[in-house]
């Protein structure tokens, strides 16, 4: 029974949270008030853990909240509840797009969307950099971070290594120098 409720509640979160991980937070607050699955302070803890662990933020939070409410299978149920609306909606849109791919208006829409997406990625980059530099506390860190960042840039532009290589390199350098 708890699984059915979990699936349904997270199905609704997936259906109404438009715009990614952070959009799910208000819904989770609502859930914590409505059903006693987890407290608000537990929720704050969940957000912190979900942000620093691998994987999409929204998925991490659904899994975490589900586990709090109903153990491992609760986590699995909540996650699949969250992603089911995506599956349905995306398949519908795919069908529509396949049919209207050659349509002039559809092509004009995508001509407008691409630069907007490029702009939003630029903003995402600025937000990431501001988080990184807000964490810096000492002049020593300013120097090491700037030098490291510059080196990463050269490496990324110069060599076409897999991103995993760079992420692991970043983790090792962070662990060594931090």
């Amino acid at each position: 029974m708890i699984y059915l409720t979990l699936f349904w509640e997270f199905f609704k979160v997936g259906l109404f949270a438009v715009g990614g991980g952070l959009a799910t937070i208000p819904f989770l607050y609502n859930l914590s008030e409505k059903l006693n699955w987890f407290s608000v302070s537990e929720l704050t803890n969940m957000i912190a853990v979900s942000e620093s662990t691998p994987g999409p933020l929204g998925v991490n939070m659904a899994t975490y909240a589900g586990i709090q409410a109903g153990g491992f299978w609760g986590g699995v149920t909540a996650t699949f509840g969250l992603v089911t609306p995506s599956l349905i909606v995306i398949i519908l849109i795919c069908h529509f797009l396949e049919k209207f791919k050659e349509n002039k208006t559809v092509q004009a829409v995508f001509y407008g969307l691409r630069p907007a997406v490029a702009g939003m990625i630029c903003i995402f980059l600025a937000a990431l950099l501001s988080v990184v530099f807000k964490e810096i506390k000492s002049p020593y860190e300013i120097i090491t971070s700037s030098v490291l960042f510059f080196c990463y840039l050269i490496l990324v532009f110069r060599f076409k290594c897999h991103p995993i290589f760079f992420i692991l390199l970043g983790a090792v350098m962070g662990g060594l120098l931090g």
């Binding site: 990431l128 990184v132 964490e135 971070s145 990463y152 840039l153 760079f166 970043g170």
Partner: peptide, 9 residues
Amino acid sequence: GIRLVIPAL
């Protein structure tokens, strides 16, 4: 350290 790499990527 990882957070510093992502913008470069």
